[in-house]
């Protein structure tokens, strides 16, 4: 391989990294909302992403045959709809289970309930992923359409060499991911709802005295968090095949992004996810494909060991 070939590979993986990274970033935002408002590490976040993926998959399988839903846009709409669907599920789950070890209940538990929360969400993760095996089956599936196999070509940039192919489905997904993050950022910054969420995050006791229903704020935050991650999952579903076990590897990817961006910061989480996407794709040009995830995990360990407070958005604690 010559230098131009390397350049092409590098640019290609950089673009792929940016596109994947935007989807990771969206999922990281979901995770960081939950941490930011509730101070809870949700171990089952990967499983909510998985639910988003299967939501998109099954709706596609059921309705995709109707002429009206024939369009190439349909999988993307389904991905966005996965948000509200999983939001409802999250709110329900918070009311039934999560609430027992978070919020005001947490103060009565050992270590502010941190261990109880970690272990409870681990239990939820196990039930969802193995229950998913029962309900969804273990055969890898995906929501692919023509766009997943189509690309725009940039270039050739130097003479007749160095062309970068930009996957169309990924590009649309990345743009949608960015839009969702921006809209949610606006909601948090501008609306009454956002204010009550931020107030509950900042000082739960003071928020109660100000007449904010902190329990409800936590429930909503949990719902938004898992819903937003589910949208990310829905967008990823058109990208590669998946099984109910996919959550575990993504939970590390998400935490890597969130910790990188500084736990609790929305902008930081998005930038963190973006960085993880780039690291993952660019490392694949040097290292064997199977080690992609190992690179992420090692990268995650390095960040968490040497800079646990993260790199971005330290002052910008929007959530």
């Amino acid at each position: 391989m010559d230098a131009l070939q390397y350049l092409e590979n590098f640019l290609q993986s950089l673009v792929a990294g940016l596109l994947m990274g935007a989807m990771y970033g969206l999922m990281c935002v979901g995770l960081t909302i939950i941490f930011g408002v509730m101070r809870v590490i949700n171990f089952a976040q990967g499983e909510f992403m998985m639910l988003g993926m299967y939501f998109a998959y099954f709706c596609f399988a059921w309705f995709g045959t109707w002429a009206f839903f024939d369009g190439l846009w349909f999988p993307f709409v389904l991905a966005l709809l996965a948000g509200p669907a999983v939001f409802l599920f999250g709110v329900l789950l918070h009311r039934v289970l999560v609430n027992a070890v978070t919020g005001r209940k947490a103060t009565q538990l050992e270590a502010q309930g941190h261990y109880a929360q970690l272990v409870l969400t681990l239990g939820i993760a196990l039930v969802l992923q193995n229950g998913g095996l029962f309900i969804f089956g273990s055969t890898p599936v995906s929501v692919a359409n023509e766009l997943s196999y189509s690309a725009w070509e940039w270039g050739p940039m130097i003479g007749d060499r160095v062309s970068v192919f930009v996957n169309q489905a990924q590009t649309i997904s990345a743009v949608l991911a960015l839009l969702v993050v921006l809209i949610f950022g606006l909601v948090m910054a501008r609306t009454r709802l956002g204010k009550s969420l931020r107030a509950s995050a900042d000082n739960p006791d003071a928020a109660i005295y100000m007449g904010i229903n902190v329990d409800k704020a936590h429930r909503l935050a949990f719902g938004f968090g898992v819903g937003i991650t589910a949208i990310g999952g829905g967008l990823l579903a058109s990208n590669a095949p998946f099984t109910p076990y996919i959550g575990t590897e993504y939970v590390i990817i998400m935490y890597a992004g969130v910790v990188l961006g500084g736990l609790g910061s929305i902008r930081g989480a998005f930038l963190g996810g973006l960085t993880i996407g780039i690291v993952q794709q660019v490392s694949a040009t040097i290292l064997p494909n199977q080690l992609q995830n190992t690179v992420i995990f090692v990268f995650f360990l390095i960040i968490i060991l040497f800079r646990p407070q993260g790199f971005f958005g330290k002052k910008d604690r929007t959530a």
Binding site: L126, G131, F134
Partner: peptide, 16 residues
Amino acid sequence: GIQGVIYGMAIIAVIL
């Protein structure tokens, strides 16, 4: 996946 479901439910029950 029944094993995982049982373990998951066992630990949820314990925490609660």
